[in-house]
Design a binder for these strands. Sequence first.
DNA 1: ATATTTAGACCGACTAGTCGGTCTGTACTA
DNA 2: TAGTACAGACCGACTAGTCGGTCTAAATAT
Lengths: 218, 218
Amino acid sequence: MPMVKKTLKQRIVDASVVLFQQDGYHNVTVERIVEYIGASKGGFYHNFKSKDELLYEVHDVFISYVIKQSQEAYDKYDTPIKRLCAMLQTLTQVFDVYQSHITVFYEESRSLSEEYSAIIHKKRDQYRDILQKVIEEGQQTKDFRAELPCTIVTMAIVGMINWTYMWFKQTGPLTMEEITEVFTDMILRAIVTDQAMEEATQFMVKMKPEEQAGFINV
Amino acid sequence: MPMVKKTLKQRIVDASVVLFQQDGYHNVTVERIVEYIGASKGGFYHNFKSKDELLYEVHDVFISYVIKQSQEAYDKYDTPIKRLCAMLQTLTQVFDVYQSHITVFYEESRSLSEEYSAIIHKKRDQYRDILQKVIEEGQQTKDFRAELPCTIVTMAIVGMINWTYMWFKQTGPLTMEEITEVFTDMILRAIVTDQAMEEATQFMVKMKPEEQAGFINV
DNA sequence: ATATTTAGACCGACTAGTCGGTCTGTACTA
DNA sequence: TAGTACAGACCGACTAGTCGGTCTAAATAT
């Protein structure tokens, strides 16, 4: 790994993600960001048109990553069930790497100005569309129950996942892997048809009888 | 219904919910709130200690209502499945009545000062605890699958529901009733044990074969 | 090899404007 | 007369963004 000196721009982005997540966009001044990394306001405005543009940058780096990962998960497999599970799986990594970004993304998107907001919203829709496509295709192949409107199913899944940023703590007793496993199990049971349940079973929570006896909820 | 003249305080709260939801707490000035209802800053600060207290008021009126409704749903029934369904059902009403409050509640809770934030967080936990209690009791009675950690199940449900405020539009093609029905179906299938599935079936999405043929996703 | 020019990254004092909150005055009520 | 409810001018703290200037390092000239 080549030891590249981080640019001021990158240092500003890194610092601001942390600060925005901690105290919120409006409670973090430009002054404080540059102070935090030992830079100046001049340096800041040399790299960014506005504080707003910085917020956009933070949003974009995150959502672009999520789209890329989701699309890759889609392309890598060829059945709806496998694709869905792979997409749920990628979230594990996203949460572990980008937790601060996620918080900023969902709490501060309103602070984006009109123009930036439009771009981000388009990308957010793109992410949802990939998931919705998987659901729709699964309904056509009769892997997923067709009696559930796919828009609602999609948003149910998105909600379950996205809400995690509100309560998941990296220092807590639950790992992101466990959570993803349980989510996957719940979602599959909820939407997979009886005839396709066999393929789905391999992705579900396994439990040997002896474990079941002494199971303790955390 | 007695025609009571609305107090200035109430008018301020009503106006601020709308404005906060539209533009966010930080983008709505006290000046604009009082202008909106034809009042003055003096009137505002006669009724509220600070802008912050107003935000607290908005939060409190909402979360208190949700807790009350949830607790009533719990008390009204005596089995975990019925209780869970009733709690999910109350959300229909909450969303129809309090949509602006909900948005403010989830987007602006960070803007609350320390002291108010603590109170609201406590109440938010209270709401979650009622739901978690239902899940735990259901696991004990073997109505709900005990192999799923009840904290994750609880947060999965909370997420699915709460996220709705992000995409549900009263003017859209979906009604809150439809959404609640699909959510209920998905959640029950996800967590109800095989042996209890019969009791749950009555709460699930029904579909006659002839409907199924021509079903179109919205 | 050394001197000179120049681009552009970065600095920080300063400005212009904003907004939460106060204070004094007034109208109305009991 | 005392108290309450409100009006609106005003204050002071704060902050996004500016602007003239500095410093470094690479390109070019001598």
